[in-house]
């Protein structure tokens, strides 16, 4: 698997897109910091970008890579290599290079700006960790979609729909149900609904850092326990891990049964 990972990674490192992605983040980091001159504000803007853009890019990139590397996959399949290694290697290659572009692209400007001396470093690291998680999750979801759809156009379509659903529509439905059922205790519902969407989950993790003052204004006991202690953080992190592993397991499962 490491060999496949190496080649996928290598292959991606020289494709234009990883550079575009890397440079995009690099520029973004510089623009945010040096135009704003304010780390705290930059962190808030970054959060918006990370929870919206990172999943979108990971999804599209994942689907694209899968379809584009079909030949490579077929070449490998005839070689004495384990099937799951091929797909996991490719998956890790894509998600790894995307995550690296993100972390380096944003990390470098912030380092140069003197983040290490700033007290926003924890917020910022959390942002990067969440961003990396989202990359791994959405690339895995994209691979799942691509593995299940031979048709490129369909695959792309589903991938974009998935993103649209999780990034926007889900929250809309969530809001509507909260308002419609406002008479009922909604603590549990809210927390569970948050956990079921990796974007919301990541957002909550960041909120725990940025907006804890506001969150603690809420009266619900379960909320309070969740937000007021380390528990919220630990539970969210654990579920992000689950969110990463589940689609990976499905990749393995699907890959074992697919014909080429």
């Amino acid at each position: 698997m490491l060999k496949i990972l190496k080649y996928s990674f290598y292959d991606l490192m020289r494709s234009r897109w990883s550079y575009v992605y890397f440079i995009f983040y690099l520029l973004l980091g510089f623009v945010l910091l040096f135009l704003n001159n304010d780390v705290s504000k930059a962190v808030i803007t970054l959060m918006n970008i990370i929870i919206v853009l990172v999943p979108l890019i990971a999804t599209i990139f994942g689907v694209m890579y899968y379809y584009n590397s079909k030949e490579f996959t077929e070449l490998l399949l005839a070689q004495p290599v384990k099937r799951t290694s091929i797909f996991l290697g490719q998956y890790l290659g894509v998600s790894g290079s995307l995550a690296m572009s993100l972390v380096l692209g944003l990390g470098i400007p912030f380092m140069l700006y003197g983040l290490l001396r700033s007290n926003a470093i924890w917020d910022f690291s959390l942002l990067l960790v969440t961003g990396a998680f989202l990359t791994f999750i959405f690339t895995a979801l994209a691979f799942n979609i691509a593995l299940s759809n031979e048709n490129k156009i369909k695959g792309f379509g589903y991938a974009v729909l998935l993103w649209l659903f999780l990034a926007v529509v889900y929250d809309g439905l969530f809001l509507i149900s909260l308002i419609v059922f406002e008479e009922y205790p909604l603590d549990n519902f809210s927390l569970i609904a948050t956990m079921l969407n990796p974007i919301d989950l990541s957002r909550t993790l960041i909120l725990l850092k940025l907006d804890i003052s506001a969150l603690l204004g809420y009266t619900g006991a379960i909320f309070k326990k969740f937000f007021g202690t380390q528990m919220g953080f630990l539970v969210s992190m654990a579920i992000l891990v689950v969110w990463t592993l589940l689609p990976i397991f499905r990749i393995v499962h699907k890959a074992k049964r697919k014909d080429f």
Binding site: D11, E71, L75, A78, P80
Partner: peptide, 21 residues
């Protein structure tokens, strides 16, 4: 088993290779 493929050389029908290699 996948190790038996060590004993096989395969020439695929359509020569599709990763383009930027």
């Amino acid at each position: 088993n996948w190790k038996y493929r060590k004993e096989i050389n395969y020439l695929p029908q359509i020569a599709n290779f990763p383009g930027n290699l």
